[in-house]
Design a protein around this nucleic acid. Structure first.
Length: 821
DNA sequence: GCTTAGGTTTCG
């Protein structure tokens, strides 16, 4: 991530410019003032006394001694060090220029990991206490005490061409600065799983092949159990005991990557196992490459550098290149739940109700049609809505969770996004009298159980809002509620049609399918129809069909990727790089000086341009800088597309701007208004009222594309996939659109497809499996699909009926299609 | 203060 910056920094001899980065600055070593708040004044060590104004003071000195991090049970870790002023008068032997510092808590851990002897540190926000060792060590008679409210700024004397973010702190309680040109020394070494020696304490990286959510042990702690592997192909079990849940590894699925520090290698039953020991820490990563490597942790501070990023990416590549993971990927949507199956479900909690002392009912949905999971419950017991519209109800699943999970479920908040592991679908048969035909029929439904215990990883996990799976789920649910509830969407049909004959939107009139149930307690099954029957039916309904895919368009996947505006419902193609490059170069020409906004710090950075360098203007929010979030958001002016992309690798968010009469302005919205790593975000030209302004403070919350778009008045466009499939059965063929449910259908997020070859390959593989280019038609799988049919709403096409797929595919053995032949 | 668990379901 930092490579390009490093090149920038090292690009010329005698580099003297300052780049803006969060935890370090590439500096000339002479201008240390950049990172230290201006209200602080330096106090010489010999002048420190109990009567000094310490609130506004900082000290500066070289670390001449650094003690170990001492962790005592039930106490904050402590670290002692000695700093010595380098620039005080050498001949003033009577003056004491060195002092003991005592660092506590996370800061101590930070210091331990991020500061080496020889580094120069500045510290502020400290208090003093009498030094008990003054007579012995001949240092200052006071100690500096640095705890939570203190800041330490570190200027590492030996620096790196790959500057490492040595002391990352979410709340920037610590800032470190590094000078360029150092040979790299890794701060942590990681042991391959094949090289573990019993009795040693090691740091390891691994890919999760099995895990259990943390559960209460019989002792004092929660216990996490996992099994990991790495390139050495060894499988190693790990047991993590921590009192606090948040200290446990945040594992969401098999294939996640964990990094653990300070685990002890033990032998149990002749097998190597890893158990956490003092100073244990863990961070986890998504195992799927997504262009950005984001550590999952609740730790305020953790070490994470360039080498870590590389290690994670190597593991991600290794996972996808090998058959590392257990074969069954059991994550399914509600619409695909098979009787008797165990599966993991990602869903949103809508309501819940206690059933008895050991059992809780969770009512959830995931945006797909639910199997019938009827559970009788007293409405008085329900937390949340007691009833939903009949159509909405058909998307909701009832899950009974037992024992330990029931206890956990009681604490869940409505609206939470959950992953429920190892759910079981139990088929239940019940005799129902059909009033119309006056005969008994067997009407099946599924009971969804999360049994007690933790075998096979049974459990519930709350997924964070920013996880890719939750993002996908939210889009599916948003589309669903739009379909189900919003009958008044204004649609710009002609524009939709222009974009590769996209259909007008579908207005769901909550058509009720065959209603042959007894007292409505069991939802009727949707009737399956043939394509011929479907074509003769009236629009505005949902149908089930069993069909094969005969062909699909577009054949080039990138053409299926579109940008969708949820406000005006317009759909547009993603502009190609050629067009973007020309927009950027136009803006470059236009980038003469203009007044910088009052809220911004403005400056320039040098970019290599052929053999020379040229300056581009950068603007940075004063407030973000004050909060230590220098790297969070950068406005940049006068760069080419290629330069912008390169810079985007080093900063969380880059907003390209251009000069206008009234100051800074966003570029033409045909171009992305925001670069986040490899991700590019676009705004709707029609619906945006964009202005460049300072972002409101987000506190500890990290900026994302939504917050930035909103602050800049940009209507964020959503990535969507749009395909046209030709279905066939024995009776007919039918063209259907796959759009709103494309992500669930294809099992990828459109945004991921936009940046990841991996995701593109996966879409390709899915389509290839459903509609192989080779082989005969007879070999193609038969799919159970739900289709909505609707009339065109535009003038030109109001007599036209369109069809859209509204379920993920469920493949059936090809013999199953014999009903309709 | 130095344990806890040590993957393997299936009652409801």
């Amino acid at each position: 991530m930092w490579e390009d910056e490093a090149k920038l920094s090292a690009s010329g001899p005698g580099t003297r410019y300052i780049t803006i980065m969060p935890f370090y600055a590439v500096m000339d070593g002479v201008s240390p003032g950049v990172q230290v708040p201006p209200h602080l004044t330096r106090i010489p060590i010999n002048l420190i006394s109990t009567s000094s104004d310490l609130a506004n003071a900082f000290v500066k000195g070289k670390v001449v001694r650094k003690g170990p991090l001492v962790s005592l049970p039930l106490r904050d870790p402590i670290l002692k060090a000695v700093i010595q002023e380098e620039d005080s008068q050498p001949n003033s032997s009577s003056q004491i220029n060195a002092i003991n510092i005592v660092v506590f808590g996370v800061l101590a851990k930070n210091f331990s990991e991020g500061v080496s002897p020889g580094d120069v540190v500045m510290a502020s926000g400290f208090t003093v206490s009498k030094s008990p060792t003054a007579s012995k060590d001949k240092l200052h008679h006071l100690n500096l005490l640095l705890s939570q409210d203190a800041n330490i700024y570190c200027f590492c004397q030996s620096s790196s061409l790959n500057p490492t973010c040595a002391v990352a702190s979410k709340r920037s309680s610590t800032v470190s600065a590094e000078v360029s040109n150092r040979t790299k020394t890794p701060r942590y070494t990681y042991t391959r799983l094949s090289d573990l020696k019993s009795g040693s304490v090691v740091n390891v990286y691994g890919v999760v092949v099995f895990f259990k959510q943390p559960f209460k042990s019989h002792g004092t702690d929660f216990c996490s159990s996992l099994k990991i592997t790495d390139q050495s192909n060894c499988n190693v079990g790990c047991t993590i005991f921590c009192e606090k849940l948040e200290e446990h590894p945040k594992i969401f699925q098999i294939g996640d990557i964990v990094r653990m520090h300070r685990v002890k290698v033990k032998l149990f039953n002749k097998a190597i196992t890893l158990v956490n020991t003092f100073g244990f820490s863990v961070i986890t990563f998504d195992g799927k490459p997504s262009g950005t490597v984001e550590p999952r942790t609740s730790s305020r501070t953790f070490h994470f550098d360039e080498q870590d990023r590389k290690t994670v990416e190597e593991l991600q590549t290794w996972i996808s290149s090998q058959n590392v993971l257990p074969p069954s990927s059991t994550s399914v949507t509600l619409s695909a739940v098979q009787p008797k199956a165990y599966f993991d479900l990602t869903c949103q909690l809508l309501a819940k109700a206690p059933i008895d002392s050991t059992c809780t009912l969770l009512r959830v949905w995931d945006g797909t049609r639910s199997p019938n999971t009827f559970v009788p419950v007293d409405p008085n017991d329900v937390e949340g809505p007691t009833a939903f519209s009949r159509e909405k109800e058909s998307f909701i699943a009832n899950i009974l969770v037992y024992d330990n999970h029931s206890e956990f479920a009681k604490q869940l908040k409505l609206g939470a996004f959950l992953r429920i592991y190892n759910l079981r679908a139990v088929p239940v048969s019940s005799k129902v009298r059909d009033i119309n035909r006056n005969q008994s029929e067997t009407c099946d439904h599924l009971a969804l159980h999360l049994h007690g215990g933790t075998s096979f990883g049974r459990g519930i996990r709350i997924l964070p809002e920013n996880s890719p799976d939750v993002q996908m789920l939210k889009r599916a649910i948003a589309f669903l509620t739009e379909d189900v509830e919003d009958c008044a969407t204004a649609l710009n049909d002609s524009e939709l049609l222009e974009v590769w004959s996209t259909p007008p939107d579908f207005l769901d009139n909550e058509a009720e399918m065959c209603s042959t149930s007894a007292e409505g307690s069991i939802r009727p099954k949707l009737q399956q129809v043939t394509l011929s029957e479907l074509k003769q039916s009236s629009p505005g309904q949902v149908y089930h069909v069993r069909a094969q895919i005969r062909s699909y368009e577009p054949s080039k996947l990138h053409q299926a990727l579109k940008l969708f505006c949820s406000k005006c419902s317009s759909i547009q193609d993603i502009p190609d790089d050629e067009l973007l490059a020309s927009i950027f170069s136009e803006a470059c020409k236009n980038s003469e000086d203009c007044s910088s906004p009052a809220w911004a710090l403005s400056g320039s950075i040098e970019l290599p341009s052929g053999s020379t360098q040229r300056a581009v203007k950068v603007h940075l929010s004063t407030q973000l800088k004050a909060e230590g979030k220098v790297k969070e958001l950068l406005f940049i002016r006068g760069t080419t597309l290629e330069e912008t992309c390169r810079l985007a690798k080093g900063y969380k968010n880059i907003v390209p701007v251009t000069a206008s009469k009234s100051g800074l302005a966003l570029m033409d919205l045909s171009a992305p208004f925001l670069f986040r790593g490899p991700r590019r975000y676009y705004g709707c030209k029609q619906c945006s009222k964009a202005t460049v302004r300072e972002l409101p403070s987000q506190g500890d919350e990290l900026l994302d594309e939504k917050i930035i778009a909103e602050a800049l008045g940009v209507q964020l466009l959503q990535f969507v996939l749009l395909l046209k499939l030709q279905l066939q059965d024995a009776t007919n063929t039918l063209e259907v659109f796959l759009w709103k449910h494309a992500e669930l259908f294809l099992g990828v997020s459109a945004e991921e497809v936009a940046i990841s070859q991996e995701a593109q390959n996966s879409v390709h593989a899915t389509l290839e499996s459903l509609c192989p280019t080779e082989g005969t038609v007879g070999q193609r799988p038969w799919l159970d699909l739900s289709l909505t049919s609707y009339r065109g709403a535009g003038e030109r096409d109001q007599n036209q009926t369109y069809y859209q797929i509204c379920s993920p595919p469920v493949t059936r053995p090809s013999s199953a299609q014999s009903d309709h032949t």
